[in-house]
Each structure stands twice: as structure tokens, then as C-alpha cells.
Design a protein around this nucleic acid. Structure first.
Length: 420
RNA sequence: GGAGGACUCGCCUAGUGGCCGAUGGCGCCGGUCUUGAAAACCGGUAUGGGGAAACUCAUCGUGGGUUCGAAUCCCACGUCCUCCGCCA
């Protein structure tokens, strides 16, 4: 949610941001109107309520005719107050809806435009020279590491089994991610993968992407698409102590995505699946620290990518592709030899106070006054990483070299041989 | 699944229809005293909204209801605890 004070002071700032995103400025004007109306409704209600309170106080002291007159008036007032209260709460709802409709303000420097208008910040690592590269599924099947056929048999399309070295590789990689996070002072966390509607709503995943989310009707719960949801909601309605610096978490969870509307897209292998595992970083900090923290999360991602020895590039995502909560977003895209292109493997977003405002997450400023905190998130490793790991390290004989940093997590193995 | 009990300001607690945004203790912050500290004493110590301000409104798990008036009465829900049953 946008800060309403900022909206009142400088609506043009928000209109400009909307234009950068390629979205309508009407939403901003609707929000301004809703804000205006809510304040008017509030004032009407409060005037009536104040009168009611003061007359009510006189009732016990009055007697006889005076009391009867007072009661008659207060009785009448009670009805008016009730009506005014209803109008106020309707105005509150309208305001909230209008506020939810306006995305975060785009940070200065974000490239304008849509999905294809990102700016490449850097390319890191040398792409391996591989003749007729096999894709990850072919490699994974040969290693008996990935089984999408049985995934489909058991659960349907976009499901898979990781078996043998595939299972070990994923566990090792995620363990390595957790260890790195711990080294950097993050609190390792294993989080619920089912959450209440308000947690889902609070993190902003029930907006434009509601159709991406699995809902458990019978229990009124949602399956999370990332542990960001649980980690963000973890401190909901709390006042955090951020004096010692940002509070950082690394959440390990399974993630669930419906992938509605992506029929026929990336259907082969495990690039786009309904369920995967992920270690996600999440930071709570003061707003003035957020941009620096964003760089820190990006550096964490790059450190992981270096450890698995994958060539990648970092992109500065364009305004129109930011999603509603982010003010800026950097993706790391790994080189996928079989596709001869880069594919997203991490994403880190600076949500400034946008998400925390919804979730009512605050800290105390130098004057001891509560202020809305900033939140940021970023990917440290996911199942999808297995794709560039397998493909970039494939050998002509069908084996796969294990990156050095990963070897300790795999009992010292330095190569995966195809199963006989 | 069934039967009970509880939910108040960081923590513990008082409060059974108007004088309660709410008592007291602990903790915390500031001050006095002290070479310094402790102790003692004094003062302060929820959050949000509206308003230029004076001020005002809301919040006692959540949402409804009764009433001129609700922390207090009624209903529903949630969470936690105890017991019984059932399943790991």
C-alpha cells in the first residue's frame, strides 16, 4: 500500500510512477477521491459520536423531565451514529480497495517499459563450449536424477520426481544456500507452506496474481508460492527493533504455483513446475537502508551462483514488469546451453514500505516513534537451478561435473556418472 | 470429534453497565542522591485516525448484537490450556 500522506502531498510523483509502469493514472485520482471521502465521513461520524458521548455522560446525573428529554435525544442520536459509522466503514473499505489497486512507486533509475525493456547490468562467467548440448531432462534421465514421466503419472503435468543424485543434488544445494545465509547472519527458517488468507493478502499475492495461487477451499488456506509470504507475515503487526541493523531470514520451503495461463510454455523438464523447493532471503530494515540492503541480497545471490559455477547475467527489471510490491527488482539469469539463452534463476525485490504497510510492520525511529519498516526479498537457490547446473557442467561422455563448492555437500563426489 | 477453562496496555495483574484508555507490580526511560554504580526516592512510559490548533474519535482476542451508554451483558468465530475419544 502506498503512503496516503505522500499521496496527498505529491500525487504527481505517483502519477509519474504509474506512467513508467505503463499503468493508468486514473487509479491515483480514484485513490485521492476515496481518501477525501473517507476523511469527510470520519469527521461526520466523529462529531456525532462526540455529542453522543457527552450527552450519555449527563444521563446518570439528570432526573425527571430533564432526563426524559436527554434520553429522547440520545436515542435519536444512537440511530444517527449507527448510520454514520456504517458510512465510515464503507468509506474505509472503498479507500482500502483503491489503495490496494495502486502499485509501489518505481525507484529512480528503473528502466521504463515492459518485460523486454530490462537493462543488462553485467554478464559474469564464461559460457562453456559444448557441442550439441543435451538439455537438463535428457541429462537428468540418464543420471536417473529427474523423472517427469512418473511425476505426470502420479500427479499430472508439471510434476516430477527427483531421485538418486537428483535428490541429493537439490538437498546439497539448498543446504549450501542455508549455510551461506547463516554465515552472513541470516536466521535460517523452515516456514509453513500453508497460510491464512490475510497472510497471502498482506504480502500482495492475491492481487494480480491470484490465479497463480492454490487455495484449499475446505480449510480456507493457501499454498504459498514462496516462503516470502510466511516470512513477511512472520512479523506482521509487530514493532521491530532495527537499531542493530536489518533483521534477516533465510526461509526453506516447498513452493506451489498453479502456472495458470502458461499452457504449452516451458513444458519440458523442470523449468516451470507446480511444486519446487527454495531457499529465500527476507530482510526487514529501515527505509533509508533498503537500497543498500537490496545490493546485499543481490551480492548473496551472485555469491551462490559463483559457487555453482554458472555463467549468468544480472538484469535491472523494467518498470512495467516489477509486480505491484517492488520499487526495483534485479534478476539473475543463468545461461542454459540447450536453449542458448539466459533464464531467470533468482529475483530480488525492494518493496520499501509497501508490503510492510499492509502487514503493519514497524520499527522505532530515533525519536522512539513507530514508523513503517521496509522489506526486501531475494532467491538464494531453487529447484530450477538444477537446470543450469546439469547443463553447464555436462561432459561429452554424459557425466556431469560437480562444482567444487558443492562437493562437500555430496559426500565429496566430483562427478555424476550416467546410470547403467 | 466431544466436555470444560482462559484471552485486558512489553510481562504479570485490578476491573461484573456510566466516575475506565483502563488499577497495581515488574521491566524500560529520565531525574535526585553518589567519585562511579547499586539501593532509595521523584517523574514518565500503548497504538492508530481526524484537525492549523485547542481538541476529538477509535481500540480491553476478532466480528456482530442488546443499551441513551459495554472491558463489563448476549451470540458467533479465533487462539491457547486441561480432560475424554480417535489417529500417528
Amino acid at each position: 500500500m502506498i503512503d496516503l500522506r505522500l499521496l496527498r502531498e505529491d500525487p504527481e510523483l505517483i502519477r509519474a510512477s504509474q506512467r513508467l509502469r505503463g499503468e493508468s493514472t486514473d487509479l491515483v485520482d480514484a485513490l485521492l477521491r476515496a481518501d477525501e471521502e473517507r476523511r469527510a465521513a470520519t469527521q461526520r461520524f466523529e462529531a456525532l459520536r462526540a455529542e453522543q458521548n457527552s450527552l450519555s455522560k449527563q444521563v446518570p446525573r439528570a432526573s425527571g423531565d430533564e432526563k426524559a428529554a436527554l434520553l429522547a435525544r440520545t436515542k435519536e442520536l444512537a440511530g444517527e451514529v449507527k448510520a454514520a459509522a456504517a458510512a465510515t466503514s464503507a468509506a474505509d473499505d472503498t479507500l482500502r480497495q483503491a489503495q490496494l489497486a495502486v502499485p509501489n512507486i518505481v525507484q529512480d533509475g528503473v528502466p521504463p517499459g515492459g518485460e523486454d525493456d530490462f537493462v543488462v547490468l553485467r554478464e559474469v562467467g564464461d559460457r562453456p563450449v559444448i557441442e550439441n548440448p543435451k538439455d537438463h531432462l535428457e541429462i537428468g534421465e540418464a543420471l536417473k536424477a529427474i523423472d517427469t514421466e512418473r511425476g505426470a503419472k502420479v500427479s499430472g503435468s508439471r510434476f516430477y520426481f527427483l531421485t538418486g543424485v537428483g535428490a541429493l543434488l537439490q538437498l546439497g544445494m539448498l543446504q549450501m544456500a542455508i549455510n551461506q545465509a547463516v554465515e552472513h547472519g541470516f536466521t535460517p527458517s523452515i516456514t509453513p507452506s500453508m497460510v491464512k488468507p490475510e497472510s497471502m493478502e498482506g504480502t500482495g499475492f492475491l492481487g494480480a496474481h491470484a490465479s497463480e495461487v492454490y487455495r484449499l477451499e475446505a480449510d480456507d488456506l493457501y499454498l504459498v508460492g514462496t516462503s516470502e509470504v510466511a516470512l513477511a507475515a512472520y512479523h506482521a503487526s509487530e514493532i521491530l527493533d532495527l537499531e542493530a541493523g536489518p533483521m534477516r531470514y533465510a526461509g526453506w520451503s516447498s513452493c506451489y504455483r498453479r502456472e495458470a495461463g502458461s499452457y504449452g510454455k516451458d513444458v519440458r523438464g523442470i523449468l516451470r513446475v507446480h511444486q519446487f523447493d527454495k531457499v529465500e532471503m527476507f530482510s526487514f530494515c529501515k527505509p533509508e537502508q533498503a537500497a543498500e540492503e537490496h545490493q546485499k541480497l543481490l551480492a548473496m545471490e551472485e555469491e551462490m551462483l559463483a559457487k555453482v559455477e554458472i555463467p549468468y547475467r544480472v538484469i535491472d527489471v523494467a518498470a512495467g514488469d516489477l509486480g505491484s510490491s517492488a520499487t526495483r527488482k534485479f534478476d539473475c539469469e543463468a545461461w542454459v546451453p540447450s536453449q542458448e539463452r539466459y533464464r531467470e534463476v533468482t529475483s530480488t525485490s525492494n518493496c520499501t514500505t509497501f508490503q510492510a504497510r499492509r502487514l503493519n510492520i514497524r520499527y522505532r525511529d530515533a525519536d522512539g516513534k513507530p514508523q513503517t519498516a521496509a522489506t526486501l526479498n531475494g532467491t538464494l537457490a531453487t529447484t530450477r537451478w538444477l537446470i543450469p547446473i546439469l547443463e553447464n557442467h555436462q561432459q561429452p561422455d554424459g557425466s556431469v561435473r560437480v562444482p567444487k563448492a558443492l562437493q562437500p555437500y555430496l559426500g565429496g563426489r566430483d562427478v555424476f556418472e550416467p546410470a547403467r
